[in-house]
Simulated assay, not measured.
Amino acid sequence: MIELDISVVMFLIAAAFVAGFIDSIAGGGGMITIPALLAVGIPPLQALGTNKLQSCFGSFSASFHFYQKGHLKIKENLPFIAVVFVFAMIGTLSVQVFSADFLSKCIPFLLIIFAFYFLFSPKITEDSSHRLIGVIPLALVLGGIGFYDGFFGPGTGSFLMLAMIVLGGFGLTQSLAQAKMFNFTTNIASTLIFALSGEILYSVGLLMALGQFVGANIGSRIAIGYGVKIIKPLVVCVSLAACVNLLYKQYF
């Protein structure tokens, strides 16, 4: 049992608050919380499991707020939710067996591409457009991202948003809302697997959940209020920050 003093607990709650705020707008909250958990001496697998637990509260808070404001239609997304859930569970099982080295080398370059796409593409607006692929192909794409989130994680929010905008034809705020719902789904799936594996520190995770919940609630309100003006630049910044973080870990 890891014992943490009050200053460390407050540090983790503050980290979760900031992560929840950023994650609800642009994704990438794990870039803050996972290093914070590792920094206080929590082993890697327990850090990942605890992070997924506390992330559930942030993604739920953001999803619920988007739902209240009419940006989410749960019934229409149930097939996608089911696929994402199953694939995320498989990804979380896989990360406990296989190495993520290959993904750590490839993902930074994908994040760069996505960041510049968000920055320069005229398609990134609040307006919906024509869906490029059918329901089944889109479900498989989302399932692949769900597997990735369970297995590795960085940039998942950006990938989900991009899939919904480019392939699904949804507007920016609606895509963000759906991304949060799918992210909540992947977090629940991963948390269940980590719980069965005994890799969650519940006391730490639930305390951090307080910060996550509040931060995500505030962030989702700002996202709805300011729309593309704040979502687009934050997605670009978070994607590039995730890229730099991964490249630094890989080569330095």
Rank of each mutant, 00 (worst) to 15 (best):
L4F: 08
L4S: 01
I6Y: 05
V8N: 04
M10F: 12
I13C: 14
I13V: 12
A15D: 07
A15L: 06
A16M: 07
A19S: 02
A19L: 01
G27Y: 00
G29L: 03
G29K: 06
G29E: 09
A36D: 01
L37I: 00
L37H: 01
L45R: 08
Q46Y: 08
L48Q: 08
Q68C: 14
N77T: 07
L78Y: 10
F80E: 13
I81A: 02
F85K: 00
F87H: 09
T92C: 05
S94F: 15
V97H: 10
S99G: 09
L103P: 00
C106H: 10
I112T: 13
A115Q: 05
S121G: 06
P122C: 07
L138D: 00
L138A: 01
L138W: 10
G143M: 13
G144D: 02
I145M: 09
I145V: 15
I145N: 06
Y148C: 02
G153V: 01
T156A: 12
T156W: 05
S158H: 01
V166T: 08
L167G: 00
G169P: 06
G169T: 07
G171N: 12
Q174L: 04
K180T: 08
M181F: 07
M181G: 05
N187R: 03
S190T: 04
I193C: 13
L196W: 13
L196K: 10
E199N: 09
E199A: 02
L201C: 03
S203L: 13
S203V: 15
V214I: 14
S220A: 13
Y226C: 12
G227P: 05
V228T: 14
I231Q: 05
K232T: 14
L247P: 04
K249H: 13
K249M: 11
Y251G: 11
F252R: 13
